[in-house]
Design a protein around this nucleic acid. Structure first.
Length: 796
DNA sequence: CGGACGAGGATTTTT
DNA sequence: TCCTCGTCCG
């Protein structure tokens, strides 16, 4: 049969035996995605209705790719009806649909990590707790851990073990903070990431009819990257599968790298206990990498105790030995890596995009950026500040959130005085006091007629009313308007655009670029969604036909869980990829460079106090190595700058764990005497879900997302295309100004956009001081753009 | 009330 | 080193 062609025998077994619980243990590069997509396609082919299948993936990108591949195999009509996505995005749909059962409006807001940390900070302040011992990050991590283990605030408070532990950790009031946090989220009609999973569990536990409905609906469950699911996700699966589902989980215990986020490797280790009649399929042949790389990776991972027996092998070429680069400083490391990379790519005639540089922490990227830039090596960085976490984007989104969900107090606070409109802390404090007293939202107080009673003077009250007026009128205009029009309306009338335009700085311009990008995404979304079929989440039946016009709420929903990936901008092609190893999961490159192989960096210092921690770091190293198809190069430095001061480093123990026969090192690793191994004694009686002491100081940064460092158009592009930059709101040369002011935007004019390419203007409209033009792009279709954003260039 | 400036603190990984 | 928070002044 066509679908099974080219599969090896174990892959084929894993595909055709779809009617019983299955554990597919898939080593790195073993064709896991292929098996998963083939299995689904095969099921569809055998007559399983698409709407009976739920496939859970680790990222949205993975889901999109699988959907596309299945579409090719079996047809888009069916693949579109599959429920495929991350736990969060799939269950968000169900949560919106069933929100009422949980006492939420279906328009509830989703708080990202920054939102929830702000709220925690505020609560700690309000409760007058010592900020030294109640660090927001610590609190957040602990709340997250509790939720991931399905411990609600009330359950937490009632558990003496937890509260005793909190007293020891000098946070006796933690349970109260947790309770208040949960209360406030609910009052704001908001859920954080962890709430989504927790609430799904509550829903499935407390609403038997809902449970039965979805059990009936989803009779086939597939879970990818099962080794990285947490307890909450595990219970969801068990609940849904309890009636008659066939669960198929796919994963590799050797690649479990998310325990800091609550992932439980035990889920995959114990699958066969949970489903005693499960069949196991092992995919051990690695089709990705050379024998050297696979064997080297095996030699490292065998140092882990906690693992499923499995030996992956490669039938490919033996390949080059793994080169190890030793540098004296982190700067030199960057230079050596950059030189080596350039040499490889050039001599092999490879593309820059064939190479990736992986590191343990985001902060390591900086020196490499410099080294690459100096050599003119094109690169792109995944990670760092995500697009959706930029201030200007969050501000604009806060307006939309407040409009969609007026109960969202956090959104209210964020924008009530941004851009500055004279509503200060004192005023907000008075509003908040009354809101608390009356048990209503800030918005309700602000929009009510008790401003005077709240203690506001006439001036403050007038400003608040003006703000209320603004939001109300924006809210009213949303009904008739197109998505993009509405977004533009918000950005303009809120004063955000004007505010940045006044600044006339590069930062402000970049903020404007980002706002434009956001507005463009509304346009793209609207265009993509219109005409899509709409299906009932419960039955999978076609609802009312095609989606006519998406709402703001639809759009917000689509972006809240959109984190990274997806943003494959065309200008990012043929560049070296720089990213953390975590971000590299699931990807592959011909050349992989892994930098910073030093004790306390990789393995990270934070992981040193337990055997589990080191094993996870080792798995992370395993993941890093197995990203390489042909060549792996490892590097480390003897000294490294940290917080401005120099530190000495020893080579990572992982280097020594690699079988020497696979290494090409011009020096003796043993020269640098390894530190005595960390004591393996870790506490025996921590509660199953309880954080180890180290787990409570998580990062304050939340990187993710891949955006090019700057989104500014590269001027050289214009030169090459024989065009010149047009209207710019930034200070610009006279020549440029002339182009803009002389109204060169006329119908029929050919123009270039840094992202959408070249197109023809089909309409021009005056919009205040600016022009609103519609451009029919040659490759990308028609779009409405504002010339004030200054990304259009006149061609010719 | 809002902006500018200075000091001090922080860095593991992210759906 | 860089970013965030707090304080001070207009």
């Amino acid at each position: 049969m066509e679908l099974l062609k080219g599969l090896n025998s174990s892959q084929r077994e894993a595909v055709v035996n779809y009617d019983a619980p299955s554990l597919i243990v898939a080593g790195a590069g073993s064709g896991k995605t292929r098996v998963l997509t083939s299995r689904i396609a095969y099921m569809l082919h055998q007559g399983v209705p698409a709407h009976r299948i739920m496939a859970l993936t680790f990222t949205n990108k993975a889901a999109a790719e699988m959907r596309e591949r299945i579409g090719h195999m079996i047809g888009g009509e069916q693949s579109r009806r599959l429920w495929m996505g991350t736990f969060h995005s799939i269950f968000l749909k169900i949560l919106r649909y069933e929100a009422a059962r949980l006492g939420y409006p279906s328009s509830f807001t989703i708080y990202d990590t920054a939102d929830s940390r702000n709220l925690i900070k505020q609560i700690v302040r309000e409760m007058n707790l010592a900020e030294e011992s109640y660090k927001p990050n610590t609190i957040q991590a602990r709340i997250s851990l509790a939720k991931n283990n399905l411990v609600t605030a009330d359950a937490y408070e009632a558990n003496a073990e937890y509260t005793t532990e909190d007293r020891h950790r000098k946070m006796p009031a933690f349970a109260q903070v947790y309770k208040e946090y949960a209360r406030r989220c609910r009052a704001n009609a908001a859920m954080d990431f962890d709430d989504m999973l927790l609430n799904v569990n509550i829903l499935l536990r407390d609403a038997p009819d809902v449970l039965a409905k979805y059990q009936e609906r989803f009779q086939y469950l597939l879970v990818d990257e099962y080794q990285d699911t947490n307890y909450a996700q595990y219970v969801i699966i068990r609940r849904l599968a309890a009636e008659h589902s066939r669960v198929c989980v796919v994963g590799d215990d050797a690649q479990s790298i998310y325990s800091f986020r609550g992932a439980k490797i035990e889920n995959i280790l114990r699958f066969r206990n949970d489903f005693p009649d499960a069949q196991t399929f092992k995919l051990e042949q690695n089709y990705r990498s050379t024998q050297t790389i696979v064997n080297a990776a095996n030699s490292v991972i065998k140092n882990n105790v906690n693992r499923l027996p499995k030996e992956s092998f490669s039938a490919g070429a033996e390949g080059e030995k793994i080169k190890v680069l030793k540098a004296y400083t982190d700067q030199e490391e960057a230079s050596m890596v950059a030189d080596e990379l350039r040499r490889r790519v050039r001599t092999d005639g490879a593309a820059w995009s064939d190479a990736a540089l992986l590191y343990r922490t985001n902060m390591q990227s900086r020196v490499f950026e410099e080294a690459f830039r100096r050599r003119g090596i094109p690169y792109r960085i995944y990670g760092g500040m995500s697009f959706y976490q930029r201030k200007e984007v969050k501000d604009l989104l806060a307006y939309m959130h407040l409009i969609v969900n007026p109960r969202d107090n956090e959104a209210f606070r964020r924008i009530v005085n941004y851009p500055a409109r004279g509503i200060g802390d004192v005023t907000v404090g008075r509003l908040a006091a009354m809101a608390t007293a009356r048990g209503v939202s800030l918005w309700e107080v602000a929009a009510g007629d008790s401003l005077q009673e709240a203690g506001l003077n006439a001036g403050a009250a007038a400003k608040v009313r003006e703000f209320v007026e603004l939001i109300s009128s924006l809210s009213a205009s949303r009904a008739g308007a197109e998505l993009y029009e509405f977004g533009l309306d918000v950005a303009t009338r809120s004063g955000i655009i004007g505010n940045y335009k006044m600044e006339q700085t590069p930062d402000a311009q970049s903020a404007l670029d980002n706002i434009e990008e956001l507005l463009n995404s509304m346009q793209t979304f609207a265009r993509d969604v219109v005409g899509e079929m709409e299906y009932d989440p419960t039955t999978g039946e076609l609802v009312a036909g095609e989606v006519a016009a998406p709402s703001v709420a639809d759009w917000l929903q689509s972006i809240t869980l959109l984190t990274d990936q997806d943003n494959d901008a065309p200008e990012d092609r043929n560049k070296v990829t720089l990213m953390t190893i975590h971000a590299a999961k699931g990807l592959e490159y011909r050349y992989v460079f892994v930098a910073g192989l030093e004790e306390n960096l990789f393995p990270s210092a934070m992981s040193m106090d337990g055997a589990d921690g080191i094993e996870e770091e080792r798995r992370l190293f395993y993941v890093a190595l197995t990203r390489a198809k042909e060549v792996a190069v490892l590097s480390f430095a003897a000294t490294r700058y940290k917080w401005g001061s120099m530190e000495f480093c020893r080579p990572s123990r992982f280097l020594k764990e690699i079988d020497r026969q696979h290494l090409d090192a011009t020096f003796d690793l043993e020269d640098d005497a390894p530190k005595p191994a960390g004591s393996p004694a870790w506490s025996e009686k921590t509660p199953a879900w309880s954080p180890k002491s180290s787990a409570s100081s998580p990062s304050s940064k939340m990187p993710s997302a891949i955006l090019p460092k700057t989104t500014r158009p590269d001027p050289s592009r214009f030169r090459k295309m024989g065009v010149r930059p047009a209207a710019s709101s930034a200070p610009s040369s006279d020549a440029v100004r002339t182009v803009a002011d002389s109204g060169n935007y006329v119908v029929g004019q050919r123009v270039a956009h840094s992202k959408f390419g070249i197109g023809t203007i089909t309409s021009v409209e005056q919009a205040g001081n600016d022009h609103k033009v519609t451009v029919d792009f040659d490759t990308d279709g028609p779009r409405t753009l504002l010339t004030k954003f200054a990304k259009l260039a006149i061609v010719g």
